[in-house]
Amino acid sequence: MKKRLMIAVLAAATCTLPVQAEPATANAFPKIVPVLTGSPVEGFTIGRGTTAYSSSIDGSIYKVDLRSGEGAVLVEPEDNFNVETDCYKLGMRVDPRSNYLYAAGCYWGNAWVFDAETGEEVTTIQLSPFGEVINDIAITREAVYFTNFSAPFIYRLPLSRNGQLIEGEGALPIPMVGDDEENTPFTANGIVATPKGDALIIGDSVTAQIYRVDPLTGHSDRVAVEPPLTGFIDGIVMHERTLYILTPANPGDPDDIDRIQVVSLDKALLQGRLVGYITDPDNLDGVASGAILGDSLYVNNAHYTTYPEPDTPYELTKLKLKEVEPLP
């Protein structure tokens, strides 16, 4: 569940396919890219080339070019959307082989598959019962994985070699179980996969812990990070053995700001070092999801503390991966 859903209860990433290379005209790319006005953002991903996608809890998906800033609605919002109670789409990822766009279905317990070019719905997949929040997605060469914020499960949807769905193959629920409770994530949110797809890194939003999870068995081990991570862990992006962990500001703490916690992992993915933060107070407000293009990390701004109105603007922010503020 991303932070907006968590606030409501209390008062909803990266695939292993190669990171896209940014074109040589990178300096021409705008730092701020507007997305759909009036649609509270949650999921974000980058597809083929410079094409990106922003999802909203209202069910819409907005397709935008990161270089030109030009965009259009790919998937329309759901009819009669109620911002107080409804949630239709959270995390997203694109498989560039098939150009399928996968979107997590929030508390409907499902996932959507769309043609990333046309927006045509390919299929929907029921993963868990209604009321359990399907949250985020990672894609490997062999499968798509989904996290569940409401129960310690991941879901594995097998793919063919060219990234196509396999007829007759459904999603397999896999319980995440560690050697003890400390090694089991219960409120899973962001998820990424290693380049070979042999391990998943999953964040637990409530405990601010990350876990190394076996994608076939679900066996999980807590990754020991020093100094410890803090805040509400939302989306996670991975490049080589570095994690970029999106952490929106805590509305109750005026000294807490939106930040990307940068963690360097060891080869076994069981030890991590928090090396610093990427921040931009003027241009970050409720970071929820992100993806890498070239040497930049793009994140969306959910504006969690701003009540969504039809004219509320939402946008993406471009951050430089190298601009990490070291720890004191």
Rank of each mutant, 00 (worst) to 15 (best):
V41R: 02
H239N: 15
E84K: 14
P158E: 11
T230M: 04
F81S: 04
R48T: 15
L200K: 03
T118F: 00
I154R: 00
V75I: 07
A116I: 06
V324T: 00
L321W: 06
K196N: 09
A11S: 15
V225K: 06
I236D: 03
G203S: 13
D234M: 00
S60L: 06
E167C: 04
E226Y: 09
D221Y: 07
T207S: 12
I7W: 10
H219I: 10
E132A: 08
I278P: 04
D266M: 02
Y298T: 07
D95L: 04
S150V: 03
A52H: 05
D253P: 10
I236K: 01
D280G: 09
D282C: 01
A116D: 12
S54P: 09
C106P: 00
I233Y: 01
E182H: 09
P77D: 10
Y102R: 08
T279N: 05
A291G: 05
L297P: 12
L270F: 01
A8Q: 14
T140R: 03
A21S: 13
G272Q: 01
L74I: 11
Q164L: 14
L246V: 08
P215A: 09
E323N: 15
E78C: 06
S60R: 05
Y102Q: 09
E169T: 07
R97W: 03
T230V: 05
K89C: 02
N80S: 13
L101N: 05
P228S: 10
G69W: 05
M6N: 08
T14A: 13
V64M: 05
D234W: 01
A111I: 05
H219V: 06
G168Y: 08
G49Q: 10
Y53D: 07
A24Y: 07
A8R: 15
G203T: 08
V299T: 02
D65R: 09
Q261R: 03
S220C: 02
T140W: 00
Y307T: 11
T45Q: 00
D214I: 10
L216G: 06
L200F: 08
